[in-house]
Write a protein that binds this DNA or RNA. Structure first.
Ligand code: NAD
Ligand code: NAD
Lengths: 265, 265
DNA sequence: CGCGATTTGTGCACCTGTTCACAAGCGCTT
DNA sequence: AAGCGCTTGTGAACAGGTGCACAAATCGCG
């Protein structure tokens, strides 16, 4: 399957810029109204562009970039056209300024401080993840409720107690948090984070968080992903079995090809 | 934000049942054509239903289940209506048969065998993840290329060398694999998995995999999720700043309220 | 300097998915 | 048995997203 699934099929609606006070503002030239679907693809374009830059390219065609990002080229062009024009007809896109523009739009000029709460099995792995730093983020704080874990150094940064959340979130100006606590603790921790000033949460716990409107929540759930794959496996085998039966029927009837053709026509 | 984002906004298209040989088959009564968006939400409904069942409920209204799953109730009803009718007007849905039906559709009756490749930082955490087992899957094999890791026991299961992939995938009838190798190795490993018979891959490496049409690939990328959140942070602060400026302008002009009202009208 | 090859940017038709709003159906009560 | 309140299931309108197909723009070359 060359068109790859990347998360978030559900519940997207609306143009991202068109928020409450937009009547006063219109859509600023420096901050266009982007379709949510486009926003979700920009990071993938950015990754592909960085890869191309590293492998010595200066420009890339929509076809080439689309291939590298796993989308179709018309979609890619339309997405990029929302950012303003960074391509040259007959040539392609200049990689460097395009990278700059996407990074600007995504708010990655300044390295964003991120807090990670719940330094268990998963949290440990995340805390040690290099791609975190290389793609625009800085783990500014680790928190856990377990006192035996507090003080532990991971990747050079000390685990602090969740009681310190208000203080640290303020002093480090943290607006994004990653939640890797057990499901049962997630809502309470999220509430504390929001109270401390966090406005975006990436939630790994398998629960729906109930938070104020203005807080952005994204959810990653391994089991959900596997279950979707499982559905497709089930479908494939069900179809296969039915197909086999149909073919058997056809063969018994004596003219399988005609049967196929008839029904299809 | 009460409407939570759950992954996969991009590139979904088409009704899931309507695949190549469907002309012969029609849509089977036991395997309805589900919209892809619906499929992506079923796991969330299932999780919510299990939770409700555990907390002593027998039935639930669309409103209640929608709340627990973080969607709106009309959407939920439409989704469930695709599975056939499991609700009673005036009452709600019977939890037990509904759970059964969703599990059947998702192919979770039999516990599916999953292989995990790349037992590093992240792979370790995944291998030890309890939610794996509790939500319909069984880690049937762990693989790594690093010989010093081969033989290591994780959660009672031994790490094997990737050279054993063909043999083990066959003997354990594995159709789903989780890929947690470095990006550079991912494509090659994916090719090996597919050659061995794997038909669904959950990819944690930040690369687009190029695989045959009939292989389902889903991708989870932490950095992408954070970058989407970063975009929203950027937007929020840009809007905030513009709003402040607009208000300041209004105040200087002498009639901020009128200005606001005028432009909005 | 003009022409052909190339590639972007986009209008448009199509399609999927969401949401509203309400008729139909069910059970409980009187 | 009829009425009433509640909740499902769905038709229909709408919104958003996708992809085709082509005109417009640019480059390189003769
Ligand atoms: N491990 C995985 O691969 C994996 C995969 C997908 C999802 N998840 C989810 O991620 C979460 C964490 O999984 P895990 O395997 O790391 O679990 P874990 O039990 O190993 O780690 C949880 C950590 O959270 C800490 N914690 C508990 N209550 C807390 C609180 N109130 N505040 C702060 N910290 C608290 C614990 O002390 C522990 O360190 C779970 O919700 C799990 O379902 C895990
Ligand atoms: N650690 C995280 O939190 C995290 C988060 C998101 C994404 N990722 C991605 O997940 C992948 C793994 O991350 P990690 O931090 O665990 O890296 P890691 O280096 O700790 O682990 C990688 C493992 O893969 C093994 N490996 C290397 N080549 C292999 C091959 N050809 N076949 C089989 N195994 C092979 C290595 O021996 C090692 O055990 C990376 O692509 C990373 O970008 C990691």
């Amino acid at each position: 399957m060359s068109q790859q699934r990347t998360g978030h099929e559900a519940g997207i609606t609306g143009r991202v810029g068109a928020v409450t006070p937009s009547a006063v503002l219109g859509s600023q030239p420096d901050f266009p109204d982007l379709p949510e679907a486009t926003v979700a693809r920009l990071p993938e374009y950015l990754r592909a562009l960085h890869h191309l830059a590293e492998t010595g390219h200066d420009t890339v065609s929509s076809e080439g970039l689309a291939l590298a990002a796993g989308v179709n080229s018309a979609k890619l062009r339309k997405d990029l056209s929302h950012l303003g024009s960074y391509g040259t007809r007959g040539v392609g896109y200049d990689i460097e300024p395009l990278v700059g523009q996407i990074e600007y739009i995504l708010g990655l000029n300044k390295r964003r401080a991120v807090a990670l709460v719940g330094v268990g099995n998963l949290g440990h792995a995340l805390a040690g993840y290099a791609g975190f730093a290389s793609r625009g983020f800085r783990i500014a704080a680790l928190f856990d409720a377990d006192l035996t874990r507090v003080g532990e150094l991971i990747n050079g940064i000390a685990v602090r107690h969740i009681g310190d959340i208000p203080e640290v979130v303020k002093s480090e100006a943290i607006s994004i948090a990653v939640l890797a606590t057990p499901a049962g603790a997630a809502q309470a921790v999220a509430d504390q984070l929001v109270a401390a000033g966090v406005t975006s949460i990436l939630n790994f716990a398998p629960v729906v968080l109930n938070l104020p409107e203005q807080v952005d929540v994204r959810k990653v759930d391994l089991a959900v992903e596997l279950q979707i794959l499982s559905f497709h496996e089930h479908r494939k085998s069900a179809r296969g079995a039915e197909l086999a039966k149909a073919m058997a029927r056809g063969a018994v009837n004596g003219s399988p090809v005609a049967t196929l053709g008839e029904v299809a026509a």
